[in-house]
Design a protein around this nucleic acid. Sequence first.
DNA 1: GAGGTTTGAGAAATCGTTTACCCAGCACCC
DNA 2: GGGTGCTGGGTAAACGATTTCTCAAACCTC
Lengths: 369, 369
Amino acid sequence: MAEKKPKTTRAARKTSERMDIRTIATAANVSIATVSRTINRVPTVNPKIAKRVWEVIDRLDYFPNTQARALVSGRSRIFGLIVSEITNPFFPELIQGFEDIAVEHGYEILVSSTNYDPQRMTHCIRRMLERKVEGVAIMTFGIEEPLLEQLASRNVPLVFIDVGPERPGISILKVDYQHGIRQGVQHLAALGHRRISFISGPKRLHSAQSRAAAFSAALQECGIAVDASTIIEGDHTMEGGIAATEKLLAAKNRPTAVMCSNDMTAIGVLHKLYRAGLRVPDDLSVIGFDDIHIAQVTIPPLTTIQMSRFDIARAAVTALRNHVAHSSDSHPQREYNIETSLIVRESTGFPHGAMTDLRKTRPKPAIKR
Amino acid sequence: MAEKKPKTTRAARKTSERMDIRTIATAANVSIATVSRTINRVPTVNPKIAKRVWEVIDRLDYFPNTQARALVSGRSRIFGLIVSEITNPFFPELIQGFEDIAVEHGYEILVSSTNYDPQRMTHCIRRMLERKVEGVAIMTFGIEEPLLEQLASRNVPLVFIDVGPERPGISILKVDYQHGIRQGVQHLAALGHRRISFISGPKRLHSAQSRAAAFSAALQECGIAVDASTIIEGDHTMEGGIAATEKLLAAKNRPTAVMCSNDMTAIGVLHKLYRAGLRVPDDLSVIGFDDIHIAQVTIPPLTTIQMSRFDIARAAVTALRNHVAHSSDSHPQREYNIETSLIVRESTGFPHGAMTDLRKTRPKPAIKR
DNA sequence: GAGGTTTGAGAAATCGTTTACCCAGCACCC
DNA sequence: GGGTGCTGGGTAAACGATTTCTCAAACCTC
């Protein structure tokens, strides 16, 4: 057996470098209560004493133990953030915003990525509950019902995107897919496209359905017949985009434009078209969704529908903080709106063969609400 | 003043739905010590009693309060992870791996992104210390000295990439840039390239210097004269890649190939070349570094030097766990090696004008160590 | 069956804070 | 001058676990 290091005894630690509120109290010659009050900026403490305490704190470079604080105050000052796929660039951009805003308000965040796996999701939720998070933002664009129960029953404040149960303590970020998607479809229609496909996300996700529905509605508005076969199921990944494009190219009546449920899918599409020797937008126009950062540098740069990560992040943190602040009975605001809008770049153009000579003049997207 | 809701008293909470170890103890008709022992699988508990306790725990769906646990045991079971830029796809892939492995061992992780800002880094470190992390992985490929002191002085176990102070409790992940970069340069040389540029990361980062140095060394090995002006400073972003390419194209003696310090830079380069009407690899060969997921679908797919995020993540967690397990005096392993190797895709080819007719046959990269 | 050794469970101290409660001064006013 | 308020700081009880003692009961052994 290895030489057993004598376990540091309390006494020994005390004399050496134990750093707690007591140390500060002794050094500043006040009670621990006063130190605590000073740190928490309770206004009744005498400014002179406060100054003395702060000096000691600075000198000894002390900071309070968050665990102990959380234990007694019942407030962990942690928010959970659950995303579906951290490797999809949309989410890191969201996480960044969420972190910045949360930290600004003194919160720490616990991020988890579920990879669309319900099992992981369960585990995730459990871990967050154990850490006593004060709220969870579930940014997965869809969640299974039973899991939701698990969370809701603990009555932790929650924020969802798109859809969630009607219950106190739960907020929804309503994304206005309609607006952006309509702009996109109108943009394509104005260019002369009539055969437009849509590559959706996984059908079981509510958000995927919403986007597909918005697409169909927009088509109809433009007087284009809706054909269910033009909607292909993808999975929000590049690989899904590639697979969907293969199906698209195999169809007997190829579309002249394709709209994707997210940018990663569109990137897959772009790649597959390049592989197939087809040119974008000459042979096929492509529209993405999200406007992730790299959409600016794809080849060609991607026309896409923007949904602001920062807006989502801010709304999510705001919603959670509101729930924490107000008691659980009064719910201040249940829904928050998130806008979407078309960003025209270079992956969209006139359909093949149409008005070739006019190709240089790109019409502005028809914006109508 | 709004109607003041009477604050829930201890007694009231007790009767309603307070859920702690005491509740379980009462329900199982044992003492709280026994419940604690059962949960922590102390072998001296009578199996019969343990079973009874577990049943109650399951029935009431109880789980221990992590804060309280951490407070008394002194172990938070949290690791910190600091990355430089969460929006660079390299890092989410790293985070994913880190999270998976950490969770596997019962750890939670606190992620923070510094965006290369020392101020943010300071704040980050502070937050992690407050949360009493048991170790921090600093995956920023470079850190300012003073900040480092702040961390090291608290003697929290640390893991760095590439370089870090020689001290107990600190491990280094040594990336073998040399190997991959040499493969890349040899690959280019074999294709017939003689004028090869390098777009580095920010000069102040140690890793950027290492990569640039490895590049120069490899050039020399291939008998190509090293010209300092061919090394252009980038900043590890797409925008930096674009800017660097502009400089490259403006040079009087244009290179026929360019190697980049990371894939995001390479993506910027690809974009700028597309904009300039140049073709890859016909007009210019491009090599990236990292092999992030989207490198497979760039146009053309990117030849790059792979560095496994998963290997890094695993090594980092392993190192931290080792430090936690062993007392701080015995340091089990200080260095961990990370391999790199060339992945040939389609962004590299013969230099412009050379052996046009042979273009279809792509030589295998010369691998030599 | 007495004495000694295990075995297993309970009591209580502790982790580092917050906060309710209490009390010593001091100013004020009749 | 002695009640009466205030003010501001100290004392001690939580918060919800872990862990060290301690000790009763059970089990041997001779």
